[in-house]
Design a protein around this nucleic acid. Structure first.
Length: 268
DNA sequence: ATGGTTGGGGGCCAA
């Protein structure tokens, strides 16, 4: 049995539970990682997921902001929830999965700080926080953490490659695509030996987006997207990469999230 | 150069 893993910044799981349900019914991924659930664990719509067969759930919630969750048809157990930058923001949770052939897989689900508008850490503490968060990720997500079959997904709020944004030149000064961020995210990935699974399937010369701003009059016509959501795997899983889907059409659904789901399929 | 939209939670802040 192959294993399919989806990631989606849902921007309020309670508001969009019907969209998530429709997505799960149509795609039936084994595991769904959510970011920006924007609720505490007690308000997470656990019953709706259970009804759809996603009875295994690990929720790291927070009132009003951030919050990540993993729901699965297959058994998962909590591995760790880590705080970053000395804050107790709910921006990470990791679970263990019995993958194909009982292969134990660790899955990290991240929501990296957006970083505000001004790309100067000296005057914008949100940008300083984002850089510090990524530095801390770099120090942690290597060595023993990444030796075994490991997957990292989430809204990393950085579009690292030139074709991850609609205009590389026009985005160089915009938070999410500044050189300091793109270099740092690549350093996080490379220092842990991670493989960019999305770019394994879509060549870096090709545009690839997972997010379109709410502020565009017509997101589809202007198509000024960014690839902010990512799936990385460690080398023990590189031979199992089977397929990738970016569910672009989800951006056109009624009352959509500004992010779309991404699905990775791994061979048994 | 500017403003554009959405969500949560209460009457602005984060994205």
């Amino acid at each position: 049995m192959p294993l399919s893993i989806a990631t989606w910044n849902i921007n309020s799981v309670r508001l969009r539970i019907d969209l998530v349900s429709a997505f799960l019914e149509a795609e039936r991924p084994d595991v769904l990682c959510l970011q920006e659930i924007k609720c505490i664990e007690g308000n997470f719509p656990a019953g709706a997921f259970r009804k759809l067969g996603y009875e295994h759930q690990v929720v790291h919630g927070q009132k009003g902001y951030h919050g990540v969750a993993v729901v699965a048809k297959v058994p998962i157990t909590e591995h760790i929830r880590r705080g970053f930058c000395g804050k107790d923001d709910a921006r990470h949770v990791a679970v263990n999965i019995a993958g194909p052939g009982a292969l134990p897989i660790t899955l990290h689900n991240f929501y990296v700080p957006a970083g505000g508008d001004e790309p100067d850490p000296a005057v914008n503490e949100k940008f300083a926080h984002k850089l510090a968060f990524l530095e801390e990720m770099k120090g942690w997500l290597r060595g023993a953490e990444t030796l075994g079959p490991t997957i990292l997904v989430g809204d990393l709020n950085v579009a690292p490659l030139e074709q991850d944004v609609w205009s590389h030149k026009q985005m160089l000064g915009v938070v999410s695509h500044t050189p300091v961020e793109t270099a740092l995210l690549e350093a996080v990935r490379e220092s842990g030996g991670w493989i960019d699974a999305m770019r394994h399937f879509v060549p870096p010369e090709e545009k690839l987006y997972t997010w379109w701003s709410y502020r565009a009059a017509d997101w589809q016509a202007s198509n000024r997207g960014r690839r902010l959501d990512h799936i990385w795997v460690t080398p023990p899983l590189s031979g199992r990469l089977l397929g990738l889907e970016v569910k672009r059409e989800a951006r056109g659904w009624n009352r959509p999230s500004d992010h779309v789901p991404v699905i990775l399929r791994l061979a048994a």
